[in-house]
Amino acid sequence: MCTTCGCGEGETTIQAHDHEHHHQGPAHVHAPGLGQARMVQIEEDILARNNGYAAANRRRFARRRMLVLNLVSSPGSGKTTILARTIRDLGNRLPITVIEGDQQTSHDAQRIRETGVSAVQINTGKGCHLDAHMVGHALDSLSPEKGSVLFIENVGNLVCPAAFDLGETHKVAILSVTEGDDKPLKYPDMFHASDLLLLNKTDLLPHVEFDVDRCMAYARRVNPSIKVIQLSATTGEGMDAWYRWLEASRQLAVPGR
């Protein structure tokens, strides 16, 4: 089972443009009737195994001098919209590739491919998050170039992806103003694990009950060092601040490129 929610084992499908690859992801096991101590041991083993794959991914990213961002959020926050707009605005300046994670369908990967960049879809089946082993297999299909930016759009879930290192440079949490402003307190592990919070759909603030200052205060309560950027991927407001953060992060990840 997943270390956090107990999701069941399911076959993972990794879909590139012209082929599919199936494997059983290491982050899921069936464990009916086990005692608490045994469950804790299983969870520790799962995370240790995942961390080994994450370390291998990180070495691959370092050799290629890549900036790798793990985009995490609940469903409907606007991850794919932010990503598609970012690619359209920066695709001529930055080499970009994408890994898309969903339980089913390749809709998001197709949407990203329409922007002109390479994207691999990972379907996790019953799984509620990506793990480092899945990402490593997806990299084999992508072969991103040196000095590039890899976006990993995780499965929509504010719980389980917090525990699984993919080898990324940064986790970027995305929260929309159509959600509760107390989300950082309800899901503290995710916001604690993230280096940046993108507060999306700010164009809807006049129409919803959402206290921006309170949300940012809650986020900084669980993670005092988290950075917050307010934006609307629909209108473009605030996207320049996100692009500046992205470029500065790439400068650090790819010095002297």
Rank of each mutant, 00 (worst) to 15 (best):
S118W: 03
H17A: 15
T169R: 03
A84C: 05
L198F: 08
E43N: 13
I82P: 07
W242Q: 02
D165S: 13
K171W: 01
I87D: 03
H22Y: 12
S176L: 06
C128P: 05
G125H: 10
R221Q: 14
S143V: 03
E168I: 06
S249A: 15
G256V: 00
S141D: 15
R49N: 05
L252C: 02
S194F: 01
C128F: 05
D108H: 06
T13N: 04
S143P: 00
G10Y: 02
I14Y: 08
C128D: 08
S106K: 11
I42L: 15
I152A: 06
T12N: 07
D165K: 13
F210W: 04
R214H: 13
R63I: 00
L69T: 05
H21N: 04
V72I: 15
G167E: 07
G76K: 07
H207F: 15
V98G: 06
V149G: 09
F164K: 02
D182K: 12
V98E: 07
N92H: 11
I87V: 14
A163L: 04
L175C: 08
G136N: 14
N223M: 03
P32T: 14
A193G: 01
V208E: 05
A253Y: 08
R49G: 03
E168S: 13
T105C: 00
T3D: 02
S74H: 04
T169Y: 10
A132K: 05
T4S: 15
T13Y: 02
E179F: 06
I42R: 13
H170Q: 11
G147S: 11
K146P: 07
A173M: 11
G125A: 07
M39Y: 03
L158S: 12
G52V: 01
F210C: 07
N51A: 15
G78R: 11
E20V: 12
K146M: 11
K201H: 09
N70M: 00
T86R: 00
L142S: 03
Q24M: 10
R85P: 00
P161L: 11
E145Q: 12
L47M: 09
Q15L: 12
L83R: 07
A37M: 09
E168D: 13
N57P: 01
E237P: 00
T178V: 12
I14L: 14
D240T: 13
R113D: 02
V29G: 01
D18T: 13
V135K: 03
K201N: 09
D140P: 02
G101F: 03
L166Q: 07
I226C: 04
T115E: 12
R244H: 10
V149L: 15
V149A: 04
V117L: 10
F61Q: 09
F164A: 03
L252T: 09
I99L: 11
Q24T: 06
P184D: 10
Q251K: 15
E44K: 10
A248M: 08
E44V: 01
V117Q: 09
A162C: 02
Y53I: 01
M216G: 00
P32C: 11
I14M: 08
R250F: 00
V254R: 06
A37Y: 04
L83E: 06
C7A: 15
T124M: 08
N200W: 03
I152G: 07
I112W: 07
Q24P: 00
L231K: 06
V172G: 05
A233E: 13
D203V: 01
